[in-house]
Simulated scan of single mutants.
Amino acid sequence: MIGKRITHRTVDGVQIPGTWRHAFIRNGRYFLTDLFIYADGLIDCWGLVTVEEFEEKLRTGWVATSFPDGAEASAHDLARWKFSGSRSRLTPELVVAEVRDTIDQLNKRPDSTGRCLAAVDDFLADRTEENRAAAHTAFMAIPFSRRRYALGDMDSKDWPLRVLVAGPGGRTYLPSDPPVSQENYARALAYFEDRARWTAEYEARVPVDGPEASYAPAVHLHHPDPKRPVADPGRLGLRNGYPAPITVGEVVYPSVTHAYWALSVTQPDVRSAITAAETAAAACELAAGATRREGWEDVRIAVMTRLLRAKYDQHPELAEILLATDGATLVHDDLNSTYWGDNGGRGRNWAGRLLELVRSELHMRRLGVPGL
C-alpha cells in the first residue's frame, strides 16, 4: 500500500514517482532502513536495482526476511539490539509480489487485487466454471498478506471473495474454513450484488460543493514575459510581468512584477529605479541586489494578492481572459523563483494559485453572491 508515502527521484529533469517501506538490509549486521520503490521498476536497497536483481538481493539475504537469534541489528543512530525469538510474516516471494504490486500502483495499472476484482466481475457477468477458475487463480495471485484487504472491507475482509471463488462444496485457501455451503455461497453472491449497487451509487454521486478537481485542462503560463503590450495578448496577458500598468496609491507601476519588487524595498532611490525599469526582467535584476523590507516573507502573499486584484480591476479586458480559463489549474513559470513559479513541478506555483483565487473573486462578483 502506497498510502501517503510518496517520494520521487529525478532522472534527466523528469520526476519518477516512488514510495517506500521499511526493510532490513544485512551488511555485516542487520540495518533497519527504507526500501525505495519507483514507477520505472527500479528499487533502491542501498543501490538501484531492477526487480530481477532485487529478487537476487532477497535470495542472498542482502534484503533480509528472517533473523537468526543473536544477530546484531541497528536502526541508524537510534538503537542497536540483538534478535531473540524473532518472527516475520514475510518471505522473499511475498516481498517480491508486494513490490510488483506497488510498481503497478505507481503506474496506475491494475495490481494483483485489481486483476482479481476484474476477473470476479467477469464471473458474475457469466457464471461459468471456467470464469470461476480464472477468478480463483487471480485471487490466489494476490500476495497472502494483501488478500484480506482486497475488498477494502475490514468487517468482511476477504470472506466473500474466498467463498465466491471456491464455489459450493469447495474449499478456501484457509484450512480452518469448512467446505462452502450453499447458504454461505448465496450470502457471498448477495454481498457482491450489494457491493455493485454501492459502487454505482458512489460513482454517480455529485459532491455537494461541486467537483473536487477541475475538468478543464491546465493552462501553462510560460516564461518569458513580453517587453511591450500587444493588441491581443491572450493568456500572455495573465503573466505577472505583462506590461499592464497598475495604480497603487499614487504610484503607477508598469506591471505587477514592477510593483511587487518596488514595494519589497525601503530605499526610495532603489524603489524608483525598479519602478522605472524598462522591463519586468530588469525590475527583478535591480531588486535582486537590494535588501528586502524586514518581514517581507511574511507579507508577500498578501501583497501579491492585492496587486493581482488591482491588475484585473483596472484592466477589464485582461479580467475577461482570466475568467475564460474557467476552472483550469493555472501553472505559472518564474525562472527566478520556485516560490512563485511551478518550474517543471519543482516550485510552489504561488503566482498561479493566487491567479485562481482572483479568478474566483471575479466570478463571485459577477454572480453577485448576497451579503459579500
Rank of each mutant, 00 (worst) to 15 (best):
L78P: 04
R348P: 01
A190P: 02
L117C: 04
D333Y: 03
L355A: 06
H220C: 06
T329H: 13
G114D: 06
L322I: 02
L307W: 00
L330G: 00
Y242S: 08
E317Y: 04
S264Q: 08
T247D: 09
V14P: 01
L117H: 01
W46S: 10
L161Q: 00
F24V: 03
G241N: 02
H220V: 11
L330S: 00
R147M: 04
K227S: 13
A280E: 01
W198M: 12
V331E: 03
A328L: 06
A118K: 14
D69P: 09
S272Q: 15
A262I: 08
D34S: 14
E320N: 10
A280G: 05
D111A: 07
L106Q: 01
R132S: 02
A281Q: 13
H220M: 10
G18H: 03
G345K: 06
Y173T: 10
R146L: 13
V14K: 14
A273W: 07
H8F: 15
I2L: 14
S337D: 07
A186G: 12
E93D: 15
V331L: 15
V303I: 15
D313L: 11
R239S: 10
V208H: 05
G241M: 00
E53H: 06
A134I: 11
K4A: 12
A276V: 07
D158H: 08
D333I: 01
V95L: 12
R87S: 13
S264T: 02
R9E: 07
E53P: 01
A259T: 01
